[in-house]
Simulated scan of single mutants.
Amino acid sequence: MTAVADDGLPLVGTLTLPVGPGPHPAVLLLHGSGRLDRDSNTARLRMELGPPLAKSLANAGIATLRYDRRGVGATGGDW
């Protein structure tokens, strides 16, 4: 999924939806501070926390959105 920031920069993220018709409650997953991607990974340490958390919430009927910050992961720009 790609959204566009006010300054025109495409922000890349992942929307995880529960199975079945909506509407569904939803949460925005915000990662910790620093150069972390949408799955809480850094260049030197891969945590991969996003996918299992999003899957667990989807199994509970909750949609999630997680995204890469500017200059991290698949989102361009300067950190």
Rank of each mutant, 00 (worst) to 15 (best):
W79D: 14
G32L: 12
A63V: 07
L11W: 08
T2M: 11
G71K: 06
V12G: 01
G77C: 08
I62W: 08
D78A: 14
A58N: 10
G22T: 07
G8V: 03
L30H: 05
T42R: 06
T16F: 03
D68F: 01
A63Y: 02
T2P: 11
R44A: 15
T42G: 08
T16G: 05
T2W: 03
A43Y: 02
D39I: 04
R44L: 15
T14N: 08
P21L: 05
N59P: 00
T16I: 04
L17Y: 01
S40Y: 08
V27I: 11
G34M: 13
R44Y: 12
V72K: 02
D68Y: 04
D6G: 13
S33G: 15
H31L: 11
G50N: 13
A5C: 02
P21G: 07
V72R: 01
T75E: 04
P51K: 12
N41F: 09
G71D: 05
S33M: 15
D39M: 04
V19Q: 15
L65K: 00
W79A: 15
A26C: 09
D37P: 02
G32V: 12
T16C: 02
P25Q: 03
A60I: 01
P18G: 05
L65G: 02
A63H: 01
S40A: 14
M1R: 14
L57W: 06
P52N: 12
D39Q: 08
P18K: 05
L36Y: 09
A43P: 01
D6L: 06
I62G: 09
R44C: 13
L17I: 08
L29A: 03
L29D: 00
T14I: 09
R44K: 13
L29S: 05
R35D: 13
G32S: 14
D39N: 14
Y67P: 02
P10E: 08
S56M: 15
L30N: 09
L36D: 01
T16Y: 04
H31I: 06
S40E: 14
L49S: 07
A5G: 02
M1I: 08
P52R: 10
L9F: 10
T64V: 03
A26W: 08
A54G: 07
G77F: 11
T16V: 13
R66K: 10
D68K: 01
L15I: 12
N41A: 08
R35K: 07
V19P: 04
A5L: 11
G20R: 03
R46G: 12
R35Q: 10
L30W: 01
A60G: 04
E48I: 05
L15G: 07
K55D: 15
P23N: 02
A43R: 13
R69I: 01
H24C: 00
